[in-house]
């Protein structure tokens, strides 16, 4: 097992892009005046002639990316998740999604761990918005190693992809020597048959800590890292529903429209079992330090442990 890396997935994204671009001259990168924050500046420094700053105009950036893709380029367009998927939603839908163009959209500073900037910038709707676009792949990598592989997989997939990036530096938990990323394939991190916890993105590691602690308390939970929200891994969900009889989803996203509802759709149509959605409960966030907010919203290891335990005791 390689050493634990404490690094924000936005930075992992910037580094992975740079590495990938070495062998692929058709990769170009666009940003909307947030290169320092989305970490596309790493690419900009390495490949200044392949980086295009669109200024503060996210809708235009997505359209420019569509035009580049129509001419054979593979553009990665980055901004905050709020603006890339919210402000530019209709451009993503109509200029990228409808013609199924090979554009990769990276949404940084997703979720409440944006922290101090507060609710206007804490996008808890991006997964929901992107899921509704036909043909859009939606990725939410959980650590440095997963992000590195997800960027490669996004490049290799011929079509639109949304990748969610986090602002907060987080510990890695995957082992790069054995880690394999495949779009649409969830990863079982812990085996167990009492209940299944399905988590995505930044909170997977928190869920991992919670599930491991619960083992010592006699609760044997299965933990699945669902790095792909769309296409969702139906098989792993149905298997979990059948074998554990109960599912708890964990996401740093509104419980409406994200991982939780994606899992509910699969479960209700195939193997109805109770599903508890843990996430942002249809409210706006607010300012504060990222870790403090994570704890306040019950999405840190301690909070998750308590919620998972309560669900299990509820029967």
């Amino acid at each position: 097992m390689a050493e634990t890396k404490k690094i924000a997935t936005r930075e992992s994204f910037g580094l992975a892009l740079c590495e990938l671009a070495k062998d692929h001259p058709e990769i170009v990168v666009l940003d909307a005046d947030l290169a320092a924050a989305t970490k596309t500046e790493i690419f900009k420094k390495a490949y200044p002639d392949r980086f295009f700053d669109c200024g503060i105009s996210e809708g235009n950036m997505i359209g420019v990316a569509a035009g580049l893709a129509a001419c054979g380029k593979v553009p990665f367009a980055a901004s905050f998740a709020m603006f890339a998927t919210g402000r530019a939603y209709e451009q993503v839908r109509n200029s990228v999604g409808y013609p199924h163009l090979n554009v990769k959209i990276a949404g940084s500073h997703a979720g409440i761990t944006v922290g101090e900037d507060g609710a206007t910038h804490q996008c808890c709707e991006d997964l929901a918005l992107m899921r509704t676009i036909p043909g859009m792949v939606v990725l939410n990598p959980a650590d440095h190693y997963e992000m590195t592989e997800a960027v490669k997989a996004a490049y290799e997939y011929d079509g639109p992809v949304y990748i969610r990036l986090g602002r907060l530096a987080i510990d890695s938990f995957n082992d790069p020597d054995t880690y394999k990323f495949e779009i649409g394939k969830g990863i079982t991190l812990e085996d167990g048959n009492d209940v299944t916890v399905i988590a995505t993105g930044l909170v997977v590691n928190e869920a991992l800590k919670a599930v491991r602690e619960l083992k010592s308390e006699g609760i044997n939970a299965r933990l699945i890292n669902m790095h792909t929200i769309k296409p969702i891994d139906k098989d792993i969900i149905i298997k979990a529903a059948k074998e554990t009889g109960k599912i708890i989803t964990v996401e740093e996203h509104n419980i409406i429209g994200g991982l939780g509802e994606a899992v509910c759709s699969v479960v209700s149509e195939n193997c109805p079992v109770p599903v508890k959605r843990i996430g942002i409960e249809d409210i706006f966030g607010h300012s504060g330090p990222a870790l403090g907010l994570l704890a306040e919203f019950g999405l840190d290891a301690e909070g998750l442990k308590a919620k998972i335990k309560a669900e299990c005791l509820r029967g």
């Binding site: 295009f52 809708g59 359209g63 420019v64 990316a65 035009g67 129509a70 001419c71 380029k73 200029s95």
Partner: peptide, 16 residues
């Protein structure tokens, strides 16, 4: 309103 942006992308690709 979206077509000029796409045309910009195409023109940019041509330059590139």
């Amino acid at each position: 309103g979206q077509g000029v942006s796409a045309a910009c992308g195409m023109a940019l690709a041509g330059k590139y």
